[in-house]
């Protein structure tokens, strides 16, 4: 794999293979020594133009457990805040000798621009671009669903027939977009629920059903209910009246939680707004996979970095 820019461009076999390698990676994380020599001598740059401590830590942990050297670059307080262009930053990383660039950027398409530019030879891994995609988040979500469904027998399986409902601000969500493509590629049935103001126009061709009624979606008994983070500033832009009304109509509160089947997974990409899109009880419920998602994120990112940086074929975990 040259780059990982989106899940839309992943076919089923490539996705399952990545998830299987993530399983291998997860297995190694139960060993006494969790560090693998796989990427020794490789340099991974975490190029974060947008603050995201959680995602950066996850990628950093993944790269370090594969013995890669990690350089963290945060745009804040760097030359970028003084007006340096993406091109100059990229060429600087090229000169430093980056083998892979993990990029988080507020601009949709920035990873693609970097990958197509010729400014840098490194593999590009999209760690979230604007409101476009966040492929490793979707992969870790799929990984989490697959493990909950198939347990130790997950390898080689997809999510055929798995019913996933994603709730909230789909319009601004790169997580939702990446999940729509990946989950449908893996055979899952995806439903999107939220206020119409936070649904993109032009989704007729999406492999997803769109609805506005969370109660109906809960009563349909989905296998996974994924709550998206709602940004407080959205209410200042007339997307919905206020937090109370949002929570009442599209929040996973205790009442809705109680109607959710026992086998359902409650998911959230984090960070959560407890009491807004998800109640504390829902977040801490045994059905919640929030912390599993975080743990699985490291395994999935190890798999992605491995595929980007090492020659295919050999056993990644030996």
């Amino acid at each position: 794999m040259r780059h990982l820019l989106s899940t839309r461009s992943l076919d089923r076999d490539a996705a399952v293979r990545l998830l299987d390698i993530a399983e291998d990676m997860a297995d190694t994380q139960t060993r006494e020594v969790r560090k693998l020599p796989t990427l020794r001598g490789k340099t991974v740059v975490n190029l974060f133009f947008e603050d995201s401590t959680r995602t950066r830590m996850s990628f950093e942990a993944a790269a370090k457990r594969l013995s890669a050297d990690v350089i963290n670059f945060s745009a804040k307080g760097s030359s970028v805040s003084k007006g340096e262009s993406l091109k100059d930053t990229a060429q600087t990383l090229q000169a430093i000798g980056a083998d892979a660039v993990v990029i988080r950027h507020s601009a949709s398409g920035a990873p693609q621009t970097l990958a197509d530019s010729g400014w840098i030879q490194a593999g590009v891994l999209n760690a979230g671009d604007g409101t476009h995609e966040h492929p490793t988040q979707a992969l870790l979500d799929a990984f989490t669903m697959r493990r909950r469904r198939h347990g130790a027998a997950s390898r080689g399986r997809d999510l055929d027939g798995f019913r996933v409902t994603i709730v909230g601000d789909v319009l601004h969500s790169r997580v939702a977009r990446s999940n729509v493509w990946l989950l449908s590629t893996l055979g899952a049935e995806v439903t999107l629920v939220g206020p119409p103001t936070l649904m993109p126009l032009g989704t007729a061709a999406w492999p997803a059903t769109i609805g506005y009624d969370l109660d109906a979606a809960v009563d349909a008994g989905p296998d996974a209910l994924m709550m998206l983070r709602i940004q407080a500033e959205r209410m200042n832009d007339a997307y919905f009246p206020n937090a109370r009304e949002y929570s009442r109509l599209w929040g996973l509160d205790d009442r809705r939680l109680s109607r959710l089947p026992g086998r359902s997974i409650v998911m959230h990409p984090g960070p959560m707004n407890r009491g807004l899109e998800i109640s504390a009880r829902a977040a801490d419920d045994p059905r919640s996979s929030v912390l599993e998602q975080v743990a699985n994120g490291v395994s999935v990112r190890m798999a992605a970095l491995y595929l980007l940086l090492s020659g295919a074929g050999e056993d990644p975990t030996s």
Partner: peptide, 18 residues
């Protein structure tokens, strides 16, 4: 606004110009 609002903007995550 970044591009025409519709199918492509929905997918690319670019703010639509309706």
């Amino acid at each position: 606004a970044q591009m025409n609002e519709g199918t492509v903007s929905a997918e690319l995550g670019l703010t639509g110009w309706p």
